[in-house]
């Protein structure tokens, strides 16, 4: 069995308003940071997972992302995978 470290990024779709991102953008500007054009907040999920090769692990991660980690009505996801 191979072990992989997976980092999943879940983001609100571009068409979905992100009020928390807007509030953080506003605070960033109050802090004095200049030039911020856009600020949106997502989630990062770290998973360590075993499987017989990368393809099998990708299948498992795809299922997890599609059914649990992200709500695809409002969110997109992508992930990176590193063999340990």
């Amino acid at each position: 069995m191979d072990q992989f470290a997976v980092k999943v990024f879940v983001r609100l779709r571009p068409s979905v308003l992100d009020p928390a991102g807007e509030a953080t953008k506003s605070a960033s500007i109050k802090l004095g940071a200049e030039g911020i054009k856009s600020l949106r907040i997502g989630k990062m999920i770290e998973v360590k997972i075993e499987g017989n090769g990368e393809n099998e692990v990708r299948e498992k991660i795809d299922l997890l992302c599609d059914r649990l980690f992200a709500n695809t009505v409002i969110e997109d996801y992508e992930y990176s995978l590193e063999k340990l």
């Binding site: 609100l12 979905v16 308003l17 009020p19 928390a20 509030a23 709500n71 009505v73 409002i74």
Partner: peptide, 17 residues
């Protein structure tokens, strides 16, 4: 009900937080 697919759409953070 929306998360489990019995009803369409999703409920997200209020516009004004």
């Amino acid at each position: 009900l929306t998360e489990s697919g019995f009803l369409p759409g999703a409920l997200t953070a209020n516009k004004n937080l």
